[in-house]
Write a protein that binds this DNA or RNA. Structure first.
Lengths: 198, 198
DNA sequence: TAGTAGATCGACTGATCGTTCTACTATAGA
DNA sequence: TCTATAGTAGAACGATCAGTCGATCTACTA
């Protein structure tokens, strides 16, 4: 059952929703998703119950991928905790420099969906919490005196980079913000300013 | 002519658009705006040409107010350049802590409006540029070696705070991020870590 | 007094929205 | 072979969307 033979309507709907919302935002029409996925109208409502649930499910799947992408970026930095976090901003620079970049999917969903009861909100917030836990652990390994606060600072920098890249297309905020990240990472238990790095 | 007798339909439309988009986003219906402003349908199209132009005009008016609010926040910090910038984050903490806070109006517009030709984009981007110039001048007064980059960093922090406050309702990113702002401000021409201020 | 411009009313168009529905088809298990 | 099950196709629902337009009213001006 559900071997990797052919993707099946449910998976095709999720894939199309992710692809189309990335370009047109969460306001995409149901018709466009159905056509892109080559799925009958009825199947959408049988599998997800409605558009809102499909959007939330596609965001959830996308969030798992992106979380994995953050983990991969961290691991690409090797074992040095400092380089691990800096590698995340290297990836951010790449992401925000890609020509088609239109801003963060989750921030867009959070701000575009007015209804506070929309199921997508739960997805974006729990995704944020998972990223927070991810960075909190990294900072704890680094000896940061307050890893929770540090993770909040990192999330501010990451989301800020993603927003400013959309708001100021020419700039490269992921590069510009790098000194701040380094200072954040140098904030270890010993309060004295870190010496020249390497 | 156009004394301050009664606001007039054009001003009422702008006021209603600002009020309603703050709650329902830029996706508000024309009908809702018309009803809130007690303005005839035809007047909207006579004054603005369409919904997109009304949204852009209301964002522009709102941007002027917010730019003035940033100036006021800076001035509330007195003459010490460091305290002036920190005062901005004091105000951010207040703004993001207000119960009804739903995220930054301009970020929301930028991400919600898919059409790249929507006139609102021009407004949000020029607003960002004006804020950039505002902070660049402050940092120049502070002796910052690269005021333009520093202004970018400040904008990343500000937008990041506004986003994270929406994405993590309980947190207080404007407070959490304060040490980063202080480090940013201490980045003066002399590379050595600045001594205790004052 | 007549003329003009601006504001308002409200019906209307055509398109699109998300959703529900009936009917037909293909496949797999009993 | 009979029967669920799950899929497709597509008409149609009611609601809402942005936008258009003729007619009327008001206020100021010549």
């Amino acid at each position: 059952m559900s071997t990797a033979a052919s993707p099946g309507p449910r998976q095709r709907l999720l894939a199309s929703a992710q692809r189309l919302t990335a370009v047109q935002g969460v306001g995409v029409g149901v018709d466009a998703i159905l056509e892109d996925a080559s799925v009958a109208r009825r199947s959408l409502y049988q599998h997800f119950g409605g558009k809102a649930e499909l959007i939330a499910a596609s965001l959830l799947e996308s969030a798992h991928k992106d979380e994995e992408r953050y983990r991969a970026a961290l691991n690409s930095g090797g074992r040095d905790p400092r380089r691990r976090v800096l590698a995340v901003f290297d990836q951010l620079e790449q992401t925000t420099s890609t020509p088609g970049f239109r801003g963060c999917r989750y921030v867009s969903a959070e701000l575009s969906l007015t209804d506070p009861d929309h199921p997508a909100h739960q997805v974006t917030r729990s995704y944020t919490e998972r990223l927070h836990a991810l960075f909190e652990k990294e900072l704890a390994d680094l000896g940061n005196p307050d890893p929770a606060a540090g993770a909040d600072q990192l999330l501010v920098l990451i989301d800020g980079v993603l927003v400013l890249a959309a708001l100021r297309p020419g700039s490269h905020p992921a590069q510009t913000v790098r000194p701040l990240v380094e200072q954040l990472l140098d904030n270890v238990a010993s309060k004295e300013p870190s010496p020249v790095v390497r």
